[in-house]
């Protein structure tokens, strides 16, 4: 589940990601990894740092709306707490709600590549195939 599986979707003004995973939790975690990979990369010279953990609980009417809500919550927490999230512990996740512990490092250990303003509902997809899940999210950058 921790393996990062995503590809970048070309978009004229913005940027998107297509994410694949064996289960719904994998989709949420991989999409979060993809988002922070677009935003920042760890500075090679930066020492190991203490991680801060925040518990995120959210609910939504539909699973794809929950995905957008989750990503925007992470963006918002990243901005207000000054953290880049690197690891996720899924305590509970179903189509309508989640409880995930997110672990972040201080932003000073990172070099910023792009500012993501928000995850959008534009062309949003979350599909359950025969043996895996796929999702597509467009970010406003």
């Amino acid at each position: 589940m921790k393996k990062k599986r995503y590809t970048i979707i070309e978009h004229t003004a913005d940027i998107g990601v297509a994410v694949e995973a064996n289960d719904l939790a994998g989709i949420f975690v991989n999409a979060a990894h993809a988002m922070f990979d677009i935003m920042a990369e760890r500075q090679a010279s930066s020492p190991r740092s203490l991680r801060e953990t925040i518990n995120v609980r959210l609910s939504a009417e539909k699973p794809d709306e929950l995905l957008v809500l989750w990503l925007n919550e992470l963006l918002s927490l990243s901005a207000t707490r000054g953290l880049i999230f690197v690891e996720y512990t899924v305590n509970r996740l179903d189509g309508n709600g989640l409880d995930i512990s997110v672990h972040g490092e201080q932003r000073c250990h990172y070099r910023f590549k792009a500012e993501i303003k928000a995850a959008t509902y534009n062309d949003l997809e979350l599909l359950h195939g025969a043996s895996s899940y796929t999702a597509k999210v467009i970010f406003d950058v």
Binding site: H11, T12, A13, Y121, N122, D140
Partner: peptide
């Protein structure tokens, strides 16, 4: 004009 989200830019 170019591709945005919801509205075009």
């Amino acid at each position: 004009i170019h591709w945005g989200y919801g509205f075009s830019i």
